[in-house]
Structures are given as structure tokens and as C-alpha cells.
Amino acid sequence: MKLIGCLLLISGWLIVLAALVMLQTLVQRGAFIAAGVGTEILGLVLLTNAYTAQQRRQK
């Protein structure tokens, strides 16, 4: 879970970079950047959940 969370964070950033390199119009770029940020949020949620579950087990 932690590894997948970290990979999703990096993937989100790569989507944002890809939007800059490959797309030209503002709307397309906006959609891709939003998708990248969404992917990062998903990664952050996964990472947070993994650590919360770990703390719960240790409590």
C-alpha cells in the first residue's frame, strides 16, 4: 500500500509534466493537470491509510 501510494504520487507528477510537453491548448492542459493532481491525492490517501492502519495495529 505504501509503495503503491508513493508510485501514484510520482505518476501524478509525471502526468502533469506530460501535459506540459505534449499538449498545447489551455483546456487540454487543464484537464491533464487536474488528472495528475487527482492521482496524487489518491496516492496521498493510500499512503495515509497505510500508516493509519499500521498505527492502529500497534496501539
Binding site: I10, W13, L26, G30, G36, V37, E40
Partner: peptide, 27 residues
């Protein structure tokens, strides 16, 4: 610059901070 342009630029910075710095720091 349009408002959307400016928001997108700041979002790229935010995505960079969360997407590359958090994994880098945590690793």
C-alpha cells in the same frame, strides 16, 4: 495572463511539491 493560466501554473508547483518531494523525502 488569464486567471486559469495562473491557477494552472501554481497547481503545477503544488503537484511538484506533493508528487516528487514527498516520495523523495520519505524515501
Amino acid at each position: 495572463n488569464s486567471h486559469l493560466n495562473h491557477i494552472l501554473a501554481q497547481l503545477i508547483g503544488i503537484a511538484t511539491l506533493v508528487g516528487i518531494f514527498l516520495p523523495l523525502i520519505h524515501g
